[in-house]
Measured scan of single mutants.
Amino acid sequence: LQAFIKTLTGKTFTVEMEPSDTIENLKAKIQDKEGIPPDQQRLIFAGKQLEDGRTLSDYNIQKESTLHLVL
C-alpha cells in the first residue's frame, strides 16, 4: 500500500509498504528516502504516536492514509 508522510514544514512524500510492516520498518524507509535517522522520527496517525514494535494494521493504516512526521 502507498501512504503519505507529511512533515511539519508541509512537505509530503509517499512510501510503499505492507500492512504487516512494523513502524520500525516504516521509519527505515523514511530514512532511505529522506535521510532522517529513525531515532529522530515521531510518527503520528489519528492523533496517536506510533510505537516501533506495532504494525500498520495494528493502527488500521490503509492505503493513501496520511501520517504526520514530527522531528
Rank of each mutant, 00 (worst) to 15 (best):
K63A: 15
K33T: 09
K27S: 01
I36Q: 02
R42V: 15
D32K: 13
G10K: 03
G47L: 03
R42H: 11
S57T: 08
L71D: 06
Q49R: 09
H68Y: 15
I5F: 02
L1Q: 05
Y59E: 02
T9K: 12
L43P: 00
D52K: 04
E24R: 14
L43T: 00
G53H: 14
A46Q: 15
T22R: 06
E18C: 11
V15C: 03
F45T: 02
V70Y: 13
L69T: 01
K33C: 06
G47N: 05
G35C: 04
G35I: 02
E51F: 05
D52C: 05
E18F: 14
Q49A: 11
R42I: 15
F13R: 00
A28K: 15
D58R: 02
L56Y: 03
S20P: 03
F13N: 00
Q41H: 03
M17C: 13
S20F: 11
A46L: 12
P38C: 08
K27V: 01
T66I: 15
I61T: 06
T12I: 13
D39Q: 10
D39H: 13
L56G: 02
G47C: 05
Q41Y: 13
D21C: 04
L1P: 03
S65W: 06
L26G: 00
S20K: 08
P37C: 06
I36N: 02
S20G: 12
L8F: 13
A3Q: 04
Q62E: 11
G10Y: 03
L8R: 12
T7E: 03
E51R: 06
T14K: 09
G47T: 03
N60G: 14
V70W: 11
K63T: 15
L26V: 06
V70E: 11
H68I: 15
D58I: 02
I23V: 13
L71M: 10
G10P: 02
Q62C: 06
D32S: 11
N60I: 09
L71P: 07
K29W: 06
N25A: 14
G47R: 03
F4K: 13
E64D: 15
L1R: 05
L56I: 12
L67I: 15
K11I: 08
N60Y: 07
Q40K: 12
E34V: 15
L56D: 00
I30Q: 00
T14S: 10
L56M: 08
Y59H: 03
I44V: 09
G35A: 04
G35E: 03
L67P: 03
G35S: 04
V15H: 01
